[in-house]
Amino acid sequence: MIELLRQLARTPQGAAGLLILLLLAAACAFGPAIAPYGPEHIDFLGRFHPPGARHWFGADQLGRDVLSRLLTGARSTVPTALAATLAGTLLGAVIGTASAYLGGRWDEIIMRTIDAVMAIPGLLLALLVVNTLGKGEMNAAIAIAAAFAPGMARITRSVALVARRQDYVGAAIARGERGTWIVFREMLPNVVAPIVVETTIRVAFAVMLFATLSFLGLGAQPPASDWGLMVADARPFLHQAPWMIVAPGAAIALTAIGFNLLGDGLRDVLNPRDER
């Protein structure tokens, strides 16, 4: 693990991604503690205060400090996206592995159904799920997990099928290894790497999707300082206080960039033989 991080820090993307994510982790851990103001500290005299010494990123329509809200909001945005992605990956991995393992007709039926489910755009599926379960952060996370599962199932299956075809798996069968050994010791270690890469990149999508749901009013609910919600809140005041949109927008973008960079870095590190 330490070795992996060291190798990662040596690739330009990995180093940049790690740096961004470390900052984010710090924001999630200490955000409320280091925030200059309380996230819901209302100051009517300081409404729409532009960015400056008093409010680094400006203040919103209620005079709340944007930076403080961002720092607090990190806690709701990033871990939720992370958890949703992991849940989606896990669900997808189980379905994909099962499909690859069953093979034949079952594989075809499962994969055709997955393809069919993927015909519903991810955002729409998430919208439908969130609408059914009710608004809220937790439900948005479930919706994102549901939207990610089919894609991850596809990827896991194809990676597993490639691993299945390797001769070392053939050799294991030929010496009479049990199924569990073959799956867990021979195949799984070789399947994990590409899935880790894909999952990392998907966290970026999850951050964006979660923010989008909040933006559409279906994710986190006011007065939470979720980043997507902050953008939605700021829209009526676009004219007076553009910083109210720019700051959370940049935070979302930075987070997504961080996970994208980390994913690319991991891809390089985990496949040392791929020179490209």
Binding site: A204, M208, L209, A211, T212, F215, G228, V231, A232, R235, L238, H239, P242, I245, V246, G249, I252, A253, L254, A256, I257, N260, L261
Partner: peptide, 22 residues
Amino acid sequence: SYLGVSLPEFVTGTVLLLLLAD
């Protein structure tokens, strides 16, 4: 392209709106 895949539509849309229209 890094920036492109990392910006959700509601952010780019709003920023474009702010810049080009507003």
